[in-house]
Amino acid sequence: MKLSGEYVFDGPREEVWKLVRDPEVLMKCMPGTQTVNKISDSEFTGEVTVRIGPFAGVFAGRVIISDEVPPQSCTLTIEGTGKIGFLQGVGAIEMTELEGQKTLMKYSGEAQIGGKVASVGQRLFDTVSKSMMKQGLDTLNGFLKSNAA
């Protein structure tokens, strides 16, 4: 399953990068996030509650950041398992500066899903993941703007 898109932040690239690399911020942005633990600078674990159609459940996950080129790009490797299935994905984030203190984030990735999430939820997975992404990025942008204010 492929996931890709872009988002324009109302702030400079350095600021966006800082927020993206802050687990406290990420925890507030990612909908349903219960906990985030920093294992190292490039590895985080946490728990996220996800609802997909008739299923809801907690995913225990791990995020590893690699190929980091601050404040421009990185690769995210994500693993999550829970009672309603599993998810594994690799995604790339690339940020470019735009005029007027704005930043364009492009993301693309590929996820493998299994279990109930796949067999019964796949029809909804696409929509759910997109809406979670949008919600998360909007919240992040909100932080950005309030930090700037």
Binding site: Q112, I113, G114, A118, S119, R123
Partner: peptide, 14 residues
């Protein structure tokens, strides 16, 4: 089935 042999329509809804 997806490329990982996960069945994606395991219900009478799909």
């Amino acid at each position: 089935f997806d490329e990982n042999a996960q069945l994606l329509n395991a219900s009478f809804m799909d």
